[in-house]
Design a protein around this nucleic acid. Structure first.
Lengths: 217, 217
DNA sequence: CCATACCAAGCAAGCGCTTGGTTTGTAAAC
DNA sequence: GTTTACAAACCAAGCGCTTGCTTGGTATGG
């Protein structure tokens, strides 16, 4: 399957990937007016939900009047869509790089799990939570657009899981495992607090691998 | 730990449990005006989200005027809370019965997984989805109330998982496994469609057990 | 007779978004 | 090097509508 995003050098350099995407106009520069708004929007949408977040909240978060928002975006929903689209673009590129950097299928899966945990609980965490939990606030037309991008992302996982199934390392169905992992990993956003508590992201990755019965064998 | 809900006969009879809870005034009769409203509210809250669901929507769903709602509930939020509280009461009782009906710890875990999948994807599915995904729409005071009930529910899981850990059947940390399972199982509501597709609930339970490396050994 | 359940009407507040006009950054024209 | 031109970015004000909820009154069943 052809993959259109640029292939990047190893090891995974998240900042380099970001710069590349900004250059291609696929993601907004976080320091631009648009980028700052999207980051604040992601935070507000996650904290209060899309519906409870008003355009006045969004405007206040970046220090402008509510009406001025509509100079940058035609509707409030367009802001939500932009958060989702840019997030999924960035994360697909990062995950792709993580997979490329790994050698065995086991390592690839570990890289995917670790990278997704980082996506969910790191810098892009707010936006990832929005992507997962505000899905139904998007119009159907927008859902279809985002879904196409999401399919690319999911293909990364399924390739690796299918390979592990062929190897005999995985017993359960790859589709189902991926769906279970989607739920399990995205749910960490509700309870995992790496800053207070000894569990590092790598520890958590180990736990997931152990849960799947794939520990270092 | 004392458990205050009534212990019921085996095998698990969901209807009997429901009748018992209705008698104790812990859950509304689904055929009463209040019960019908709560069922419709759960459906609407899940489909459109709490915020997008208006009191006019809720009233129309049971065929009354919007103002008349406030004869039964003081605020819209009280409706959300009632949906959550009654759902968690019912499901705790059902799960408790399911655990009691099983003999080994492996069977108990299987019963819990199967029962939670039933809760999420069966009759009470709408309400369970609301319980999971509309949490932040509750005021903090209400959250604290519901949290107490949820702790009872979670204790059921942790007892079984801790026992499996002691047996050596489980490698990963019980707390983490439970949280992963919470995410994974509740996420099924977004993709699992038992009616169209060969995968039965028992099949899905098998897959989860297989994923955990606990298959019939 | 009276509480319970409801209706018809509408209020105050907040919502997304529009409008008309002003400031600001930039770059060519002189 | 100042002037002119012009679009992008923003403000102040508010419109039209929907929201959760209230009010005063009317059926209905025991």
């Amino acid at each position: 399957m052809p993959f259109l995003l640029p292939q990047l050098d190893l090891p995974v350099n998240q900042d380099k990937i970001l710069q590349s995407l900004i250059a291609d106009n696929l993601v907004s520069d976080p320091e631009s007016a648009r980028g700052r708004l999207l980051r604040e929007a992601a935070r507000l949408f996650r904290d209060k939900g899309y519906e409870r977040t008003t355009v006045r909240d969004l405007a206040a978060a970046v220090g402008i009047q509510s009406g001025s928002l509509f100079h940058h975006f035609r509707t409030k929903e367009e802001i939500l869509k932009a958060v989702m689209v840019e997030t999924i673009r960035l994360n697909t590129a990062v995950m792709q790089a993580a997979v490329n950097a790994a050698n065995t299928n086991r390592e690839k899966l570990r890289a995917l799990i670790s990278a997704e945990l980082e996506s969910i609980n790191g810098q892009t965490g707010e936006a990832m939570a929005v992507l997962v939990y505000e899905w139904r606030s998007l119009s159907e037309a927008s859902q279809a657009e985002v879904l196409k991008l999401r399919d690319l992302y999911e293909a990364l996982w399924l390739d690796v899981l299918n390979a592990l199934k062929r190897d005999g390392a995985l017993v359960a169905d790859p589709f189902i495992v991926r769906r279970m992992l989607t739920g399990a990993l995205s749910w960490t956003v509700t309870w995992y607090r790496p800053e207070r508590g000894g569990l590092t992201r790598e520890d958590l990755t180990d736990q997931v691998i152990a849960m799947l019965g794939l520990s270092s064998k």
